[in-house]
């Protein structure tokens, strides 16, 4: 069963809103779609809403980090939105972080960050 994440486009910003738990394959599919969409619309930013995720383990964290690094090499920014507090705590204990990636608590906050930049 594959789950396709909707990716909205708005004023040069891609907004990927994850709706449910994703398998590793689903996350890899999201990665390649985001990267090709960034190129095709010359996106200036990518916003990834992860608030529906109950788990962000080492695979998910690494793949999101890879997405952000590739997007940055294209000259665009990535903001990860809505990491649940329980998920954040589990990430810290596991030894994971999004050190060089902007995070925001909700979409409004993400757009504030993009405007301020």
């Amino acid at each position: 069963m594959t789950r396709r994440v909707p990716i909205l486009r708005q004023n040069g910003i891609l907004i990927a809103s994850i709706q449910e738990e994703l398998s590793d394959g689903d996350i890899l599919a999201l990665q390649s779609r985001i990267l090709s969409d960034v190129v095709s619309i010359n996106a200036k930013a990518v916003v990834i809403d992860v608030s529906a995720l109950d788990v962000l383990d080492s695979f998910g964290t690494r793949t999101l980090t890879e997405i952000a690094s590739s997007v940055e090499l294209r000259g665009a920014r990535t903001i990860i939105v809505g990491i649940q507090p329980e998920v954040a705590m589990a990430m810290v204990l596991l030894g994971l972080d999004f050190r060089n990636i902007a995070t925001a608590f909700d979409l409004d906050h993400a757009f504030d960050l993009l405007r301020a930049a």
Binding site: D57, M89, A90
Partner: peptide
């Protein structure tokens, strides 16, 4: 607690992978 549920789910995810 919800926090512990997340920890258990994360541990399972790592071992299963």
């Amino acid at each position: 607690s919800r926090a512990d549920q997340a920890l258990i789910a994360t541990a399972i995810s790592e071992l299963a992978r």
